[in-house]
Design a protein around this nucleic acid. Structure first.
Lengths: 344, 344
DNA sequence: CTGAAAGCGCTTACAG
DNA sequence: CTGAAAGCGCTTACAG
């Protein structure tokens, strides 16, 4: 039976013990130069590569972290993932990416493997995850370190890196107000989602500041997707009494809204101003280029990864004792071509 | 020191041996009903979850497969990944997703972990991967089973699932010819890429059938990105002698091209017809909606995953001996609004 | 149907 | 600076 070379093969070839091979690999300085070289030569000769399962078992760690996200098909996540991958690969850790709603239609499930047995840490981008499962199972010291990014779960006190969604939404609305709009609608994110809630509240607050409000009829339901943005445009178009501007909870919705509006012969921004949220690559390439809230997505990913690394270094007891930090990253409003003063 | 419960704790709680616990978990039928129930009760009481590192070490497998792709930020891959995740999660396997060009600018690197030691199989979506590294290292029986999807490496004979890029490109060109275009350009994919080469060749072949050719000046360089599509539009616009239609090697390029063209006051498709390739979600929501080659992305992912599963079942020797199958999935041309007869 | 025992391939105090 | 030995937590022939 053919087998991959093991540390014993290397030890034999180098004429040393397996302990020395192991030390040469993990802590070369404690080994004399001649043996070190002999070991490296033996490694080359045998084509040895360390068996992670064995190392992990022995070290009681896995060398991997997992990222849980609601929908990998959503382009919003791509740069966040690059940011995470960047700092994790520097730290020598592998990254599992896992869609929390793959095939089934049930609640967002916490994958079984997302426990200490499989993973040294977790970054969770999904605020809809049910938290009854592994997330809060067993003694806290045994639960893998976890940090939230972008989204979070109110009941689960863990470190997080987010933006200020409330303030960002308010900023988007104030931009529309400054252009002279008084009749402003909102295409909402998925109901129950923490981002949807914060963005809607922020929009309402900014409207209230100006003595305005958001009629229910102008809060168009949606779920962040292109299609739901298009649906919002249809609802907007069908309404007798229409707002002159709409703030969308995501860029995909904004792009879907604009596409559907244009397809119906509506001119953007002449007849309707549209603001997005996220600043996807597509936002600046669309026509009209999308006015939107720019999120520093790679930075969010990097910050979350660094925070997780910090938490992984802490002793379990200390980690549980310490307060969970909350990093809030700044956003900017990218004013482009999809907003203008109201018609007439 | 606090430790996660192990199989010994369960055995003790249930009053059986660890062997019986293990059997109950992996092969419940061979265990009597009473012990089985006792074991399950003990598992619940202790909160036991199997330690994968130990299981993997013992079983000489890892329970995970890796997907290697050139750029996770490219929305083209998202549905392929869902397709893969769908069948792999059914099979009880975890999926590592790895960007082959994360931070560094060097050649696409084969990640170290993509060896038998870390992963039971590989799906490679990156034809630019250097194949000198682990890919062809050591005896073939020891290399993890690998299947290519979408892209491939000519010199590496492995199973693959692709589309017929040559035929698809020809189909796109014939659509433009049928509309009456005689002056047709091509916005190319990244140089050296197998897809770029096949699509360019297919376009040339269809042009040649009609007694036409593709002047060098009309083969706009690109790299599949939005920005390179916009650059192609600028080059097209600046040219003295311009084609009336352009076939783009990707939807992102087509969308970038159209955006830049429209921004310069050019009407699409009235002044220039544009065909894309891929059929991203955005394609049908853009204005004009993009005429493009529809790729069955989820199917590609599912087919690649199934093929990998098959190969993983084979004994190493047999796997090496067998010819590598090549599955070619059908594509369709989605005719929408971005193409029309040439001006005048 | 069940248990004792070996062993998967590492790492790491403990001696020397 | 180096080796012998124990042990990480499982699984699986081998007996019974």
């Amino acid at each position: 039976m053919l087998r991959a070379p093991s540390i014993r093969d290397v030890a034999q070839a180098a004429g040393v013990s397996t302990a020395t091979v192991s030390r040469t690999l993990t802590n070369p300085d404690v080994v004399s130069e001649i043996t070190r070289e002999a070991v490296f030569r033996a490694i080359r000769e045998t084509g040895y590569v360390v068996n992670q399962a064995a190392r992990n078992l022995r070290r009681r760690e896995t060398g991997a972290v997992a990222v849980l996200l609601p929908n990998i098909a959503n382009p919003f996540f791509s740069r966040i993932l690059s940011g995470i991958a960047e700092v994790m690969s520097e730290a020598g850790l592998n990254v599992f990416i896992n869609d929390t709603t793959p095939v089934t239609r049930d609640e967002h499930r916490f994958p079984e493997y997302a426990s200490h047995a499989h993973v040294d840490g977790l970054i969770v981008l999904d605020g809809m995850l049910r938290h009854d499962a592994l997330l809060d199972r067993g003694p806290p010291e045994l639960r893998p370190p976890l940090v939230f990014a972008c989204e979070w779960i109110e009941q689960v006190a863990r470190p997080k890196v987010t933006i200020d969604n409330h303030a960002a939404a308010a900023q988007a609305i104030r931009h529309l107000l400054a252009l002279g709009h008084r009749r402003i609608g909102h295409a909402c994110g998925p109901p129950g989602n923490v981002l949807s809630i914060a963005r809607l509240a922020g929009a309402r607050a900014a409207l209230a500041e100006a003595g305005l409000s958001l009629p229910d009829a102008w809060a168009f339901p949606g779920d962040f997707s292109l299609e739901s943005g298009a649906a919002a445009a249809r609802a907007w178009h069908a309404a007798a009494d229409r707002p002159t501007a709409v703030f969308c909870a995501s860029d995909e919705m904004a792009l879907g809204f604009i596409g559907e509006a244009q397809r119906r012969g509506i001119k953007v921004p002449d007849e309707i101003s549209v603001v997005g949220f996220d600043d996807l690559e597509m936002a600046s390439h669309a026509v009209p280029a999308l006015t939107t809230i720019h999120q520093p997505r790679a930075d969010i990913g990097r910050a979350a990864a660094r925070m997780l690394l910090e938490r992984m270094l802490l002793a379990p007891a200390e980690r549980v004792a310490r307060p969970a930090p909350h990093v809030v990253l700044p956003v900017t409003l990218a004013v482009r071509e999809s907003t203008a003063p109201p018609p007439r």
